[in-house]
């Protein structure tokens, strides 16, 4: 579970909210990158005239590693950049892709902007909420899916569409949504 592990497994395991055997939340382990990841941090910092520019890439790496950007992660990353935690907090709270609380194993983000709206996005959102039994912004009790409704993902030619983790899913119908959900474990 610890971010110190260097395997990919650590990445996946820690992207879930930490729970103990009884399913209760336990405090997250102290965050730290592996030696290899620290090398990557330094490489990223070296790519730019000012190493602060690597903050977004490193926060992406941190989110992959620790599952979400907790305050503790912010503090840790601030230390890697000689920034104050407040400066990192400003950045983390500004962008929509950084999760500040544990998220599901999969993130389903439905576009609700104009073209998708015209193609029935509200109904797709309603369908997803019904199927998953959660509202937009929530995560299923089993930690499987976090549902979001987002601004234009710039694939409006395939409206209505959504992003599932790294993938774009196009031309949604309730049936297609069901098939996609089935594939999410």
């Amino acid at each position: 579970m610890s971010g110190r592990d260097r395997t990919d497994g650590a990445t996946r395991a820690s992207s879930r909210p930490p729970t103990d055997h009884a399913g209760l939340e336990v405090p997250a382990p102290t965050v730290a990158f592996s030696a290899e990841q620290l090398g990557e941090v330094r490489r990223l910092q070296g790519l730019y005239p000012d190493r602060r520019a690597a903050l977004l890439p490193v926060l992406h790496l941190a989110q992959e590693t620790f599952g979400y950007i907790s305050l503790e992660v912010e503090r840790y990353v601030a230390g890697l950049f000689d920034l104050t935690p407040a400066h990192v907090h400003e950045v983390v709270t500004f962008y929509t892709m950084f999760f500040r609380a544990p998220k599901g194993r999969h993130v389903v983000a439905v576009c609700h902007n104009l073209s998708c709206h015209l193609a029935g996005a509200p109904a797709i959102v309603a369908h997803l909420q019904g199927r998953l039994g959660i509202h937009v912004g929530e995560t299923t009790a089993d930690g499987r899916v976090t549902l979001q409704s987002v601004e234009c993902l710039c694939a409006c030619e395939h409206a209505p569409m959504m992003q599932v983790d790294d993938r774009y899913e196009f031309g949604l119908t309730p049936e297609k949504v069901d098939r996609i959900l089935e594939g999410l474990r």
Binding site: L118, A119, G120, P122, A123, I124, A126, H127, G130, P160, T173, P174
Partner: peptide, 14 residues
């Protein structure tokens, strides 16, 4: 006025 083929279908389903 929101009716669209897609949304009608989806609403019916939901």
């Amino acid at each position: 006025v929101v009716a669209t083929p897609a949304s009608r279908a989806a609403t019916a389903h939901a």
